[in-house]
Design a protein around this nucleic acid. Structure first.
Length: 185
DNA sequence: GTTCTAGAAC
DNA sequence: GTTCTAGAAC
């Protein structure tokens, strides 16, 4: 795909210092341009790498651990200001943007940019691969296994509340339900 | 990834 | 009649 295609946009975002929340010698953290929750960030290796989670192998364990640590440090600072916020860290099984990036997203999913079933399912089903589990899988199996058909099916599945597992008929109703659901995940 | 919008669902 | 989803985008 051409380098100016939308799927390559993260490369220019990380070069824009205004978009960067923080960086160190190996990673950069940016705000997601279309946040799907109140707090939604991306941690990328620098220089950027054109590959997805399924391409990771055992030699990437240290990098993913470092990306996760950077995310957790930022999360700790945000949580100190707002103790009720919970974050998840992880990768989309089939990313749309070509550059390797780890999502760090608060679990409120309270955002006008979260608009459709694919958005919901990409963060609330196993399509979202927890970063700790990715690290463990790399150590154990040397790679991360992604079944493309299973992943695509997860994006199309019925809207399900990640807390109480209720199936809800449409997205506005799901958002309303989730905002009030008190069940533990 | 997003925007736009036709037509399905209600 | 309005809400909502899902597929095209040259």
């Amino acid at each position: 795909m051409a380098r100016n295609h939308w799927s390559h946009a993260l490369a220019s975002v990380v070069k824009d210092k205004k978009m960067c929340v923080e960086e160190d010698s190996r990673t950069v953290t940016i705000k997601d341009g279309y946040p799907k929750a109140k707090h939604h960030y991306l941690v990328l290796p620098t220089p950027v790498q054109t590959r997805g989670v399924a391409s990771l192998d055992k030699t990437d364990v240290a990098l993913v651990q470092h990306m996760l640590r950077r995310g957790e440090e930022l999360a700790d600072r945000l949580t100190a200001k707002e103790p009720s916020v919970k974050f998840h860290f992880g990768f989309h099984s089939i990313p749309s943007m070509v550059h390797l990036h780890m999502h760090m997203i608060s679990q409120d999913f309270d955002s006008p940019k979260l608009k459709n079933k694919k958005h919901w399912n990409s963060f609330t089903t196993e399509f979202f691969l927890d970063a700790e589990e990715v690290i463990e899988q790399l150590k154990r199996d040397r790679k991360v296994t992604v079944n493309k058909q299973e992943a695509e099916d997860l994006l199309k599945q019925d809207l399900t509340c990640p807390r109480c597992k209720a199936v809800v008929s449409n997205l506005p109703r799901m958002k309303d339900h989730y905002a009030r659901c008190k069940a533990s995940p």
